[in-house]
Nucleic acid binder design. Structure first.
Lengths: 216, 216
DNA sequence: CCAAAAGTGTTTCACGTACACCCATGC
DNA sequence: GCATGGGTGTACGTGAAACACTTTTGG
């Protein structure tokens, strides 16, 4: 089981990597992962690994793809079920590195050479994120609970790899009626402070049942 | 490895099932499947099973999902990688039943009680098909090489579970410029014969590279 | 001649898209 | 006062959706 952990910070989409201490690929960076135990489901294994390797709990997690190329691990035949996770980097104050292992966040556009076929898994995960962010409100999983519209827009621009028009973006996203103004505004910014919103997940689930579809 | 094999015939979306000869779930219907060998990739295993259990070769095949619930097989822990396949039932004259095993096609809306968690896998496969048929030209994998527009439309109606407007459908699909009139018409029909078209896969691949996206 | 499906255009409306300026705040 | 991003409305064009009748063929 391997997991692509995405985070958004500093206006940049990042992925968590771990530096291998053992052969093969000793010293290389790799996706966090581990073995699935006999007494846990695949999803449980993914959540456990996330907690163990990053201290992250309660994050968005979704199965991505299963890779079973014969020689992907030079030692022996290993099939891996890949997951991807979306975590709120800002505010949660994640400790990327734990215990013995060396872990760090890298911008998805500037990733070192990875062990095994992990680059391909990462590519696939980003592709999935890029596709899904349009029709499911998963972008909010990467932002803090309260966010400014410009932050949300920038996140979308990074995920979709395209520039969006500010007024059209605001019209569309506010038009869905799924953002609630908190009444609060940004602090400690060197310019006019933006209003902060939060995503109304309850309302989303309700109107989704009635056939509403998120689309951006 | 398990495989959901879809076929389209008689105006109806069908799935191939196999009747189990062994415990557990002896006598129940189940998805065709088998074990992945150490010297083959997952995709290869899926293709091999397809050939062995249905004599089908050269079909559309895609990985669906991996299920690893602990008790999904009452005997022991079994993780299965599910695939789904789209086959051209008409014309290919598929032999659904082979050798020893009892195999048959069932309408997806009228499936018997299935072994293991195969119903859930089938549901997931149908959901995927339903979603993907809109933005990738996979519907053609279910039709014979030459088809009438009304057949294509009906296939879409079955996959999407909604009725489509004839004129709008024709406008849109012909407007893409991806259907080639063969000059032939239907035979042996008790009414005016429809023109037959084929899908221009080469052209699709070309214009896809240039950013075109199929959408229906 | 009747049944059954093929084939064909136009109008309407909603939504996506393009686009530029003033405002509030911190320094 | 100036730099930085926040916030706002309109006009236009494209594309989706609704909609009904004539044509062809076999039986």
């Amino acid at each position: 089981m391997d997991c692509v952990v995405f985070g958004y910070d500093d206006g940049d989409l990042k992925v968590m990597l771990i530096q291998r201490k053992l052969k093969p690929f000793k010293g290389n960076w790799a996706l966090p992962g581990g073995s699935v135990r006999l007494d846990e489901t695949l999803d449980e294994a993914a959540r456990r690994e996330l907690v163990e390797e990053s201290g992250l709990n309660n994050v968005y997690l979704e199965q991505l793809y299963t890779v079973g190329d014969i020689k992907r691990d030079p030692r022996e035949r290993v099939v891996t079920v890949a997951y991807y996770a979306l975590v709120k980097l800002v505010g949660h104050n994640v400790q990327a590195s734990t215990d013995a292992e060396n872990a760090a966040w890298f911008s998805v556009n500037d990733v070192p050479k990875l062990a095994f076929d992990h680059q391909r898994i990462l590519d696939k995960a980003f592709e999935r994120l890029k596709g899904k962010v349009r029709y499911e409100p998963i972008g909010f999983e990467l932002l803090p609970g309260k966010f400014a519209l410009s932050e949300l827009q920038h996140l979308y621009e990074v995920c979709l790899e395209e520039k969006l028009d500010k007024r059209n973006f605001r019209k569309k996203i506010l038009g869905m009626g799924l953002l609630i103004g908190t009444g609060e505004i940004q602090k400690d910014v060197a310019h006019r402070a933006a209003r902060l919103y939060r995503f109304d997940m309850k309302k989303y689930r309700q109107i989704k049942k009635r056939g509403f579809s998120f689309w951006l």
